[in-house]
Design a protein around this nucleic acid. Structure first.
Lengths: 238, 238
DNA sequence: CACCGACATTGACCCAGATCAACATCACAC
DNA sequence: GTGTGATGTTGATCTGGGTCAATGTCGGTG
């Protein structure tokens, strides 16, 4: 018997899926209640310190994950160290389903992070029995593809000012911030630069510029306060 | 009865799926033989002249397509006319399954092109009855996402020389050209520029540069001949 | 055939953002 | 408290690729 001061947890230190904080927004939401015990049995938790990598580009892709807490950055490296961050993941996001032998990007925690891990073969087996979950994954992959295409427009054609404005507006949308308001910025300037195809200096200067234009405020390195949402969206080119 | 001098064709001018030239490499390959008549009944053909658009970003996404002949470019436009091409499609490729109300990019023929068209609701109904096809679409979407992420690295971090080299190598791989050899380049310099996040002048200069470096030859505006494949891959950063 | 318009190449110059460098800020260890 | 290293900001300068402009190439048309 498990004491219930806290939600029930299994020997692997992972809470049961029924108690999972992100279940309603994760791919698991598509699994019917009858599949929850099976999901729970397959899942193991993992804690990742800030800066620690979950996996690296080229590793054999034998696990898939749901992010339950924190933030991950996904990136690709060139041999000389140039880096492109291809995405930031937030709780509820799913990752790892590479169609191929190995992961096509590295994943590293931006802040202390927890993920829920599944072995790939077992997860795929479960997908067989749960078409709703497969549909959900297809939908998410499609949405991610559309976001990647939007980012291609940003990287290929937007100015530094437009890039930074787009970044802030996109983050705000994902955080469900509708108008003006305060936005956490957990990643470093270097991460932002490598996401936007700029240098840290240009990112810093551009934040300062937007602040001088009174579109944003920067009460702290890791917080942006949106002051003029409409103008910011305008600058972003949305 | 349909005379069989040519493969059987239906009133809509579209050949039956069983006779389709790209069936073995399209999503339709995942449909069992028993589904072919149903596929054929749903499909209609469409011819698109070079330069004509199949659909535009923002149009209601009520159709999906398989490219049967020619080449399409997919692109996003900004209000001031800046353009980012997010992909070139070749026969066998599938497009249009936007997860949302409307298409997120425009599609235009690069050369005279034919597509096979399905109404979305009917196509989705068919997917319900054919999990193999849904899996196939998920696999393709995943692969496309990985390609988009590779392109993000190109757009965010590579030099003009690396971009053009990457472009040539990627095209060669898709055309199954393994080593040295001649490669058709159906799109204009302007299309290449908008795909690589460069200007036409830089694309032109960079082709000339690679030619002077003896990595490629340019016997014609629309042909590249790869002379030193290994060095080209090196420059591309692969 | 000559003419035309679209596309591509090449040259001269310019500028947005990179690079190099100095300094500021802050969390943390001692 | 003071020192130290990581992170961020700001300034000065440089440069890869953009912009502007002239010229070349070629397929189509009368």
């Amino acid at each position: 018997m498990v004491a219930k001061a806290h939600p029930s947890a299994f020997s692997n230190g992972h809470p049961a899926c029924e108690d999972c904080g992100v279940r309603s927004i994760a791919v698991c939401a598509a699994a019917g209640v009858e599949l929850l015990p099976r999901l729970t049995a397959l899942a193991t938790g993992r804690r990742i310190d800030a800066g620690q990598t979950l996996f690296q580009e080229g590793d054999v892709a034998d696990e898939v994950f749901t992010l339950t807490e924190g933030m991950l950055k996904l990136y690709k490296l060139m041999s000389d160290g140039r880096r492109q961050i291809v995405g930031f993941l937030v709780p509820g996001d799913f990752l790892g389903l590479a169609f191929g032998r190995s992961y096509v990007y590295s994943a590293e925690a931006v802040v202390p992070t927890t993920v829920c891990r599944f072995r790939r073969p077992q997860f795929l087996d479960m997908l067989e029995d749960c078409p709703a979950m497969e549909k959900e994954i297809l939908g998410r992959t499609s949405t991610e593809l559309a976001a990647a295409q939007e980012q291609m427009l940003l990287l290929g054609r937007k100015t530094a000012r437009e890039r930074v404005a787009s970044f802030i507006v996109s983050l705000a949308r994902r955080s469900k911030i509708e108008h003006e308001g305060s936005l956490p910025l957990p990643m470093s300037r270097s991460d932002i630069a490598d996401y936007l195809g700029l240098t840290i200096e240009t990112v810093s200067r551009t934040f300062t510029l937007l602040r001088k234009e009174k579109l944003i405020e920067l009460p702290d390195k890791h917080v942006v306060e949106i002051k003029k949402r409409a103008e910011l969206e305008q600058v972003a080119g949305f």
